[in-house]
Amino acid sequence: MFYIHCPYCGEHREEEEFHPKGQAHIARPEDPDACSDEAWGDYLFFRDNPRGIHHELWVHAVGCRKFFNVTRNTVTYEILETYKMGEQPTVTAEHPEGRPSRDAADQGTLHEGVRA
């Protein structure tokens, strides 16, 4: 059972309040009509499927109903951080311990999740 910190509600809540919505940070092509089949297929169907650190979109479905991002390890299932839409992760596959000092982190908008 996950115990997930919603960055909008500012509280840890049980997994059942949330729904996972797939990979985070996928930008819709700016001009879909000008997309090649290759680019459009990649956008629609091809996803990162890492064994390790992964950035995901979740929705607080029976809470504030807002979408947010979760950085999670897909092997240990540990939630490393949750952050609002439009923000970038501090913990990444390249920086598993977190990038040193960043404005968003200093402002306290990033919160570590815990697994119960």
């Binding site: 059972m1 996950f2 996972p20 499927n49 064994r51 992964h54 995901e56 897909t74 092997v75 299932y77």
Partner: peptide, 13 residues
């Protein structure tokens, strides 16, 4: 389970 995972175990819900 709705999320990606390689843990070979599932969630209680």
């Amino acid at each position: 389970d709705g999320y990606n995972g390689y843990g070979q175990r599932g969630s209680y819900p």
